[in-house]
Design a protein around this nucleic acid. Structure first.
Lengths: 341, 341
DNA sequence: CTGAAAGCGCTAACAA
DNA sequence: TTGTTAGCGCTTTCAG
């Protein structure tokens, strides 16, 4: 079976406390003793049990991460950022994908609870919607009583740290870019308006239009849901109806893809037949040379910020609640213009 | 602090053994007692500590997953498949991304070792290359002494279960498709030839050519490394040199993207100026309407197969070593042809 | 059907 | 500087 601290103690002819001391670099231990113990550990290839250690110390070195769509590149990158810092800190990452399903979310939280993790980073399935599901989530988080950072989507009256994105501002800015390019009919494929991030982005669009004395035209407002499929359908529709806006704001990476699918299908050329700016960057589009302009955040960094915030909270449980809002950057590549040739 | 089994026992006026019994549905417990205990558990919102349980039972409900590139969609999907089954079985997933770095791989394995997981699914950084790193990996895996499934890439003389892909056959088939379409100059952008999967795919190409009495022309063999960038450079090169093959086999999803980038940059149209078949499917290309033909595996399913294999091995430690080879499917969408218009 | 007690592998006082 | 001892929260005999 697996070696224990006792095996090492016996072999090194010391007590297990001494072994524990060299393992943890704690307390005093004679140089020679330390070397002897270390030698035995190496020789016998001993790995201390994290389980036993966690039980004894009543603290774990595991960080829990719950996200709604592991296959969405945004979350994949966030995960990468988190993983990086977790690694640097010699901790371990437990991970669960809720698939945007509140029931799975609840189960994931129970699992996290039983594992007794040190902290949790979660992107809720819901977002400020005051739903039953959200209330239950909040209750579970409260019961959890561990450092928690909420990422990207939030809950109402949060008592937890959070890292979010300048949703409103980024949409406002993107819209302004289109306005300043001189486009007349500026449309938007919105995100899921049940989610606050969807609402905020929409609001950014509306306000920008208003501030520039543009009447947002209802027929250029397409209500999407952050999915490829819906954005594609909406794009098809306006192309079929031959009432094509001059420019479109697409509200996330998936929306952008659906939009592009529609354009390609009808052979409309981006930057020529229609202009667009998206929220979120899209690596594959860049690779393929689409020059799709966007306002985007650094998602890997967003993950890093979240985990650092979590570790900070662990150190200072009573510090005031923190909220970090990630700024957006503007990446203009040409698609915001329209060059009728 | 966190509730313990004792708190519940006290409140329910029974011993902790009884609580344990209702928790685990083990042994006899009077119906009324059970109900009383369950009521208390619910009321006080008690979650048993997985840590304590694992220590006591000397077995854990955690599955470790180590992959080299979490951002590669292939692995993201594999992870999704694994997560699904892990979830169904009420287990927990620990995850580590090695970033294709053997040093990180070694650290990840140490972490896994300390966590005392129930089993491990790993895609090694190396692949049958007999390197020092690979030997070290094997030693670590042997020392680990837990059920292990090796996925996608393998090690020499493996003693572990594995799930792999029909690398040779898929490349052979893809090449044959191009041959049968009547293409003359059939090229290949290979994968990393240090990895066995790279070699096997290349061999599939060569053999298919030979079997159809085609002399593979050296100048149409482009040695890539499974990366977007390299494939892009190679594509640029042959376009610049104006020695463009009629058709190309691209050896994985990233290679395909790099290839497409090159084509787009020089405005060559797939299925018209040049034909191609790729290994691995590419969702974004499909979305964008590229009709890129490919031979591909079901990667989510590959993950499922791996985790099921692992659980099976846990049940039957002494069963003969198993190797599952995932078949490929052919997705012809048009890019294998070349329609000079 | 239930409870008492030992023990999982480790840490952390406390003595020595 | 080291060893002894008492837990950490749970499961699992073994008695009753």
């Amino acid at each position: 079976m697996r070696l224990t601290i006792n095996d090492i103690a016996k072999e090194a002819k010391v007590s297990k406390s001494t072994v524990s001391r060299v393992l943890n670099n704690s307390g005093y231990v004679h140089k020679e003793t330390r070397e002897k113990v270390e030698k035995v550990i190496k020789e016998k290839i001993y790995y201390p049990s994290a389980t036993a250690r966690n039980l004894s110390k009543k603290e774990s070195n595991i960080i829990g991460v719950i996200i709604p769509e592991a296959n969405n590149t945004f979350f994949a990158e966030v995960l990468k950022g988190i993983g990086e810092v977790v690694d640097e800190n010699d901790m371990t990452l437990i991970f669960s994908d809720t698939n945007n399903d509140s029931v799975k979310e609840a189960r994931a939280l129970d699992m996290i609870n039983m594992q007794g993790v040190r902290g949790l980073i979660i992107t809720p399935v819901n977002d400020h919607d005051d739903s039953d599901a959200e209330r239950k989530l909040k209750k579970k988080l409260r019961d959890l009583k561990i450092p928690t950072v909420i990422l990207d989507r939030g809950v109402k009256n949060s008592q937890w740290d959070g890292v979010f994105f300048e949703n409103y501002q980024s949409a406002y800015c993107a819209t302004e870019i289109l306005i300043q390019e001189g486009h007349e009919k500026i449309g938007i494929i919105t995100g899921d308006l049940n989610l606050k991030i969807g609402k905020d982005r929409f609001r950014g669009y509306l306000e920008a239009m208003k501030d520039h004395n543009r009447e947002p035209l209802k027929r250029y407002i397409y209500e999407g849901n952050f999915s490829v499929e819906k954005a594609y359908q909406l794009t098809r529709q306006f192309i079929e109806k031959k009432d094509i806006p001059d420019a479109v704001l697409t509200c996330n990476n998936l929306t952008t893809l659906g939009f592009m699918k529609g354009l390609n299908e009808y052979q409309l050329v981006l930057g020529k037949d229609i202009a667009a700016v998206g929220i979120d960057s899209n690596e594959v589009l860049d690779i393929l040379g689409y020059n799709f302009s966007c306002v985007a955040r650094d998602s890997v960094e967003m993950g890093r910020v979240a985990i650092r915030m979590l570790l900070e909270r662990y150190q200072h449980p009573n510090k005031q609640r923190l909220e970090s809002v990630m700024p957006f950057s503007v990446y203009l590549k040409g698609s915001e213009r329209k060059v009728r040739s």
